[in-house]
Design a protein around this nucleic acid. Sequence first.
DNA 1: GTCTAAACTCTACACCGTAGAAGTCAAGAG
DNA 2: CTCTTGACTTCTACGGTGTAGAGTTTAGAC
Lengths: 230, 230
Amino acid sequence: MSAEPKSRARRGVDRLDILDAAFNLFDEVGEISFSIRKLAATIGVDPMTILHHFGSKDELLRAVADYALRSVEMPSATKNWRADLKAVANAYRLLAHRHPRVFPLHFRYNATGPADHISSEIVYCALRRAGLPDASAAGLGLAFYAFVLGFALAEAEGLLKAIGPAEEAELNNLDPKMYHATQDLIPALKNLDPNAVFNDSIEVFISGVADLAKLKPRLVPIPECAAKCA
Amino acid sequence: MSAEPKSRARRGVDRLDILDAAFNLFDEVGEISFSIRKLAATIGVDPMTILHHFGSKDELLRAVADYALRSVEMPSATKNWRADLKAVANAYRLLAHRHPRVFPLHFRYNATGPADHISSEIVYCALRRAGLPDASAAGLGLAFYAFVLGFALAEAEGLLKAIGPAEEAELNNLDPKMYHATQDLIPALKNLDPNAVFNDSIEVFISGVADLAKLKPRLVPIPECAAKCA
DNA sequence: GTCTAAACTCTACACCGTAGAAGTCAAGAG
DNA sequence: CTCTTGACTTCTACGGTGTAGAGTTTAGAC
C-alpha cells in the first residue's frame, strides 16, 4: 500500500487546493458572500467538483474552520502555568485578528481537531499545576475557552473597541437617573484599549484560578505530569 | 399629532406580528432553514409585505435578536456587587438556554438596545463598587460580557457538556506521551456538570476582580452612585 | 490496444432575497 | 354618495444559491 491514494484519473485540483482557496475566499468576502459557485469560479473548476471532494457546503466550512485553526502556531508548555494560559489565549486572539471572517466558524463547528487538543493539553496541564483538582480543572479548562473564544469573537465582530461619537451620543441620551454608572464611564469607554482590556481580563482569570485553587486544593498529586510539563 | 401613525389603509399585520412570528420560527427551525418566504407562509402573507416592514432580511434578524433580548427579565441592582454580577450572567445564560437558535444572533448584530443598557448599568455599577477604577471597570465590564456571552454561546451550541463515548474514544486514541493531562481528565470530562462549571467560572471572575481591585484600587470615590446602587 | 474506476462536468430543480410594477382598500374631501 | 389619495399588500420577474443525478473524461492496469 502506497502513501498516495493511487489516483487513477486526472488530478486537476486536490482537497488541499480547494481548502486553501476556500479559506482565502472566505477570509476575503465573508460568510454572506461566500458561495461554492464563486469558489469554483476562482479556481476554475465546476462547482460540483468541490462538492464531490467535500460532501456539502457545511462540511467544506467545517474543514475551513479546522484549516484556520491549524494555521496558528500553538505555544509549548513552560514551567510557568500563568504564562502558558496567557500564551494560549494570545494564540487564539491572534487567529481572530488575522482571520476575523473565518474565526466565527469555530463556534458553529466545535473545533475538535488535533490543533485544539494541543492547546487544551496545555490549558489542562496549567490548571492542574495551578493546584486545581481534576473536576475543577476540566470545567475551568472549558470555561477558559469560552472566555478566550468569546473575547476573540467579540473583538473580531467589532464589539470590543473604544466607542465612537454615535455611541457616545446614544449613552448620553439615556436617562441620567437610571444610567449613572454607564454615563460616568463614557470617558473611559472612549479611550478603551483592547490590548489592556485583554491583559486585565486574563490577569483576572488567572488570579481567580489561584484563589479557587486555595479554596479547593487538589488532594492527590499530579501523576507524571510534573515530569513532563515542568 | 396623534400617537397613532394615523394609518389610512387597512392594517393586516403590523411589525410586532411579524417580529413575533419571525422569532418563533427562527427559534424552531434555526438559521439555515429560516427564510422570509417560509415566514410569510406561516403568517399567511406575501413575502414582500415582510420586506416592506423591515428593510431586508438582515434588518429583520437584527430586530429578532433585539426582541429576544427584551424577552428576558433583567435583575435589579442589590447591595451585593458579587450577587449582581451573578444575576446578570444568569439572565443571559437563561436566554441562551431558552432560545439557543436565536442567541447567536447577538454576536453578529452587536446588541445595543435598552435591555442591554440596563444590564450593563448593573455590571458597571458592580465593578465600581468592587473597587475598580473607571478605566478598569469599563474594560472589565466588556470583558465580562465577552465571557458570559461566550459561555452561553458555547453552551447553546453544545460545546460545553459532558463528553460522550465517541469523544472519549477520540481522546484515548491520542498519543499518551503528549496528551497526558487531557487523558487524565477524561473521567472528569465524562461527569461534567455545566451548572457547576458556570458557578465555578463566575466565582473565578469575581474573585479575580476583587484581587485586581486590591492591586489597582480606585482613588476617587464613586460619585452619587453609592446613593443609588447601594 | 481495451478495460475500469476515479475525477470531473453538464443539466436541471427547487429555493432564496428582493427590485419594481401593479393592485387593493380605508379614510378624508367634495 | 363619489372621488382622490396614499399607505399597505401582492404579483411578477431576475439573478443568485446548494446540490441531486446522469453523463463525460482521463490515467493507470492489463
